[in-house]
Simulated assay, not measured.
Amino acid sequence: MEFLTDYAGFLLKLISVALIIVFVLGIVASGKRKSQPGSLSVTKLNESYDDMKAELDRQLLDKKVLKDREKEKKKKEKVEKKAKKKVLKESEEEAKKRLYVLDFDGDIKASAVDSMREEITAVLSVAKPQDEVVVRLESGGGVVHGYGLAASQLQRIREANIPLTICVDKVAASGGYMMACVADKIIAAPFAILGSIGVVAQVPNVHRLLDKSLIDVELHTAGRYKRTLTMLGKNTDEGREKFRQDLEDTHGLFKRFVSGQRPQLDIDNIATGDTWYGSEALENNLIDVVMTSDAYLVSHYDNAEVIQVVYKQPKGMAERFGLSLFSALEHKVVSWVGKLTQSRGY
């Protein structure tokens, strides 16, 4: 027992020192992180698709058939090279179409907008009118200002006269649909969830509990509606009414935005907060095509360059060091505990 007590004390000291080091490094690195540039990753999805197809051919086809196919492929590549050179000489604008693929996996704060804005800036610097931007979007919605910014970033593509297609495989609801409706074309999988054009807010209130415990909470504001509902203080009917009115105003803004992007929608019947699956969403004009994003991209592999663009945010020194430190510490603790329990026969 004395050994275990000493060991626990040593372990706590070690963890304390590690936390202090990470905290100090975090303060030092926080000022530098903003100035560090991120990295842009570009992947040609056509090549990945061709590699997978070639590997399956090697595994499944007869050697003679495989050899004949390889000969045909080389001939086709020679013809394409000549055609490409000719096209480039005649006119740069007639070059092969490009599909730029971006991914947006949204959380409640729409945090992915930080990377998406950089990806859009990069794509718009090289994209031409015959190209297309495809955004694979997954989001159940979140805060108004976060998704409002995300939708505004997508509008930059439309304003540059570059066709924009949104693909939804699982869900684009509420703020997610606010983003999707900006597109020239919305494609959704048969069981993807779309819609939820509504606004929700929830504020817990523990005033009565505090009142029973004889705890007073003072809230001082300048401005009649600076704080309508609070978590700790007593809420008023006037405050509740103003809060509800703010929700209605936000809902009205949401409805006007969606109907402005997709005038074919019967906005009053659709903007009830309800959701629809892909096939039903098509009937209600929420989307344009029922199809998975994979099927859409594969359909363009033969006649376009399909390029995935990913911007990776820089990680601070403290974050990188902290993650590796705690991972190593966790591994060591598990190892020590394992040896200890083994030696005592547990």
Rank of each mutant, 00 (worst) to 15 (best):
T5F: 15
A8R: 13
L12G: 13
L14A: 07
S16K: 10
S16N: 13
L19C: 05
I20G: 04
I27D: 01
K34H: 15
Q36C: 13
S39A: 09
V42P: 01
A54E: 12
E55F: 15
L56K: 10
R58D: 13
L61H: 01
L61E: 08
V65E: 11
K67Y: 06
K67H: 07
R69K: 12
E80L: 02
V87E: 00
V87A: 03
L88C: 02
K89Q: 01
E93M: 11
K97M: 09
L99R: 05
L102Y: 03
G106N: 00
G106M: 04
A110Y: 02
S111T: 11
A122D: 07
S125V: 03
V126I: 12
H145W: 08
Y147R: 02
A150Y: 01
R158A: 04
L164W: 11
K170W: 08
M178R: 07
M179R: 04
M179G: 01
L194D: 01
S196I: 01
I197M: 02
G198L: 01
V199F: 10
A201L: 07
P204S: 15
N205C: 14
V206N: 14
H207I: 08
L209E: 10
L210K: 13
L219C: 14
A222G: 05
R224H: 04
G233E: 06
N235I: 03
T236C: 12
T236A: 11
R240L: 09
E248Y: 09
E248N: 05
L253E: 14
Q264C: 05
D266P: 08
A271P: 07
G273R: 03
D274A: 13
Y277T: 06
A281V: 03
N285T: 03
T292D: 15
S293K: 11
D294Y: 05
Y301N: 08
A304S: 04
V306S: 05
S324I: 14
L325C: 09
L329T: 00
K332I: 15
W336H: 15
T341H: 11
S343G: 11
